[in-house]
Design a protein around this nucleic acid. Structure first.
Lengths: 228, 228
DNA sequence: GACTACAAAATTGTAGACAATATTGTGTAC
DNA sequence: GTACACAATATTGTCTACAATTTTGTAGTC
């Protein structure tokens, strides 16, 4: 999705992409078992290729592989969910900093265009587009910051955020609305570093606050803790 | 090494470990080709296992796999090297923040003990120990911060730093001396968040400054740029 | 009747064989 | 003598069959 170009030539990436999207769109729930042979049949590929995809997804934190047990859609703990946001605030602060220094008018145009797409998708209600674009905004910021490395880290963090959102989002979601995105961009456009950083931090706080992270302090991951 | 316990039962991790150490100790230079069959013979394992190890090392940024071409020890660019330090400053700031809040006396003792080990290794001149311990300090901070996730990110960043250090370190290294580590710990011990953050930032700046990152703006990665 | 030990089924892990691709060397034509 | 095309070699990529492990079902015994 955010690497659709690479995916075109790489069959493994296509598998990852589809599984990722299924997770992000909640069609695959956290905890779901992912049998290799079953996936191999579904995608009409060899089991070896499925294994590649699963290990790739594991490194992105989307699936958890238990040795000799199989692969499952990850169930990030509340603590991990919070940690992801800690990391995102840390990384995206630097992204915004860099962007305030380096952003040229063309970048701003592109960012505004992206936000417009988000708005359209929001109205149309296409969940697939909404999920992709809302994370895509943050990735676009990282890309325009000119740091391929920060982009890579954020790509990972955004993926995990998708899973976390799918797992913990409350019913009353307005899910990463484009308004706050626009505010960040406008601060960047006017080279107001402090405001841009603050806006981004608040935005991430809002996204985190909308999740049901406070209520059940630690969800029943174990059967033992779930039943006893 | 930093996951020696996991490595014990996982043959793949052992391979990764050894290759990692060889890179960090400069026995394997950046750009070195890593032939699968050759590695398979050296470690007396199947080629499939070597492939697993290589893909794992690729995700850590230590080796670069070019499709149908093979695996090479990565040659991080100057820009990427700088980015790694940007990311480390961002992440480790948060680590230190958390640690100032949560650190208990036992943690401080453990940190001081680690620094003592670093000092001893520094005197003995055991390169393997020095490399392991100097990165290990930062990982220990992350571990004690109580965030498994931040630990994971930093593990990745520290690995990359090792490669970068091996590639770009100037001749006059004092390489991440224990003195600055101790300063950070003492600030944490006295719950002085601002000073701890500042000390850590300066420490990372020093480590970065000791590298030959300014001189050759972009090293000859391509043959074209190298020879023409 | 319940618990333990054993056996069978299913699923993952591993390895070896085969196919595809890139590189290098050689030969021929101009 | 040089350049291009073709073939040979070496190396990676992929698939299929086999081994190991776990889980589930069953029978026997206390």
């Amino acid at each position: 999705m955010y690497n659709a170009d690479e995916a075109a030539g790489a069959p493994t990436a296509i598998i990852c992409e589809k599984i990722w999207l299924a997770i992000a769109e909640r069609r695959l729930r956290p905890g779901t078992r992912l049998k290799e042979e079953q996936l191999a049949e579904i995608f009409s590929v060899s089991r070896a290729r499925i294994r590649q995809a699963l290990t790739a997804l594991e490194r992105d934190g989307l699936v958890t592989i238990m040795p000799n047990r199989g692969a499952f859609v990850s169930e990030p703990s509340v603590d991990e969910a919070r940690d992801v946001f800690v990391a995102r605030r840390a990384i995206e602060q630097r992204v915004v900093e860099r962007l305030c220094e380096r952003a040229n008018p063309k970048d701003i145009v592109r960012l505004r265009g992206h936000i417009e797409e988000e708005r359209i998708a929001g109205h149309s209600g296409n969940l697939s587009d909404i999920v992709r674009l809302s994370g895509g905004f943050h990735l676009l910021l990282a890309e325009l910051s000119g740091s391929a490395f920060l982009f890579g880290i954020l790509r990972d963090l955004v993926s995990r955020t998708s899973l976390i959102t799918a797992m913990y989002r409350s019913n009353h979601l307005h899910n990463c609305g484009p308004d706050e995105h626009l505010a960040v961009v406008e601060h960047i456009a006017s080279r107001d570093v402090a405001s841009a950083i603050k806006e981004m931090a608040e935005h991430l706080n809002h996204v985190e606050a909308e999740l049901d992270l406070d209520e059940e302090k630690d969800q029943p991951r174990d059967l033992r803790t779930a039943l006893l």
